[in-house]
Design a protein around this nucleic acid. Structure first.
Lengths: 139, 139
DNA sequence: CTGGATCCCAATAGATACTG
DNA sequence: CAGTATCTATTGGGATCCAG
């Protein structure tokens, strides 16, 4: 098992980013935490795409060990945990912004309704600030 | 087989981008075309990370069918083909830029020597313009 | 109940050898 | 040079099980 980082041989910053986020699910999870306001395992499971439990658990471990997310106890409900982005994770805001702009420009299908997707286009600084401050602009 | 797009159920622009680029290699290939000046299959094979031949062939087909790259004959050498980014592919420049900035900020290892990585930091517009114009700032 | 772990099985990714 | 063929390894979905 081992949370061995998927190897970043070249030292290239893109390769490094891919070693942390370069799979089909990690960035979806970041998106759910950053702009959909998901906070718990159950909320992450119940996303738009339907990740399975084993993959989610594995990715959360990977993201945690790479300093993207942090897990803490929910003070309001001791049975539940709260996941949140670290500053390193929140620094992905500009990456998310550019991906949303590119994906929005070339994807034919309609985006799901989410204020954030409009915000990126109309006021990108606001979008990024919201993620950085962990304010919810979401859903 | 089939170059079936890896499914973009949710319509989310991020999910769309991931359906095209969300694996360990596609963005590496885009990087090699955009900033390392690779143009042929052999040059792509001979990158910093060492992709294997079957994966490269498969990804090139996927990228081509998703409108990111274009293949044409090399006018100077009829036995060889030239791959290049389409405008859609070159529009990934801002995404690459943000990834390089993020990866550069958090990756401990030294980046390989490439002018482009310095250019992003010092003059981002120049970096993006170079990719958009298909000028080589590379290696 | 929430947050997983486990198992089974299908589908993909990948290394290496080889070919038109 | 630009791939394909083959074989192995890893990932992923879905159901179920289990611990706090």
């Amino acid at each position: 098992m081992s949370t061995k980082s998927k190897r970043n041989l070249s030292g290239c910053p893109i390769d490094y980013a891919l070693s942390v986020l370069g799979d089909r699910w990690s960035l979806i999870i970041v998106r759910d935490l950053a702009i959909r306001g998901a906070k718990t395992y159950a909320e992450l499971l119940d996303g738009w795409e339907g990740i399975s439990t084993n993959i989610l658990a594995q990715r959360m471990r990977h993201l945690e060990s790479n300093g993207i997310v942090e897990k803490r106890k929910n003070p309001a409900n001791w049975r539940s945990s709260i996941y949140e982005l670290t500053p390193k994770g929140r620094d992905l805001a500009p990456v998310l912004a550019e991906i949303i702009l590119w994906g929005g420009a070339y994807n034919e299908s309609d985006s799901p309704k989410n204020e954030a997707y409009d915000t990126v286009k109309s006021d990108r600084a606001k979008f990024e600030a919201a993620i950085r401050e962990n304010d919810e602009i979401a859903q």
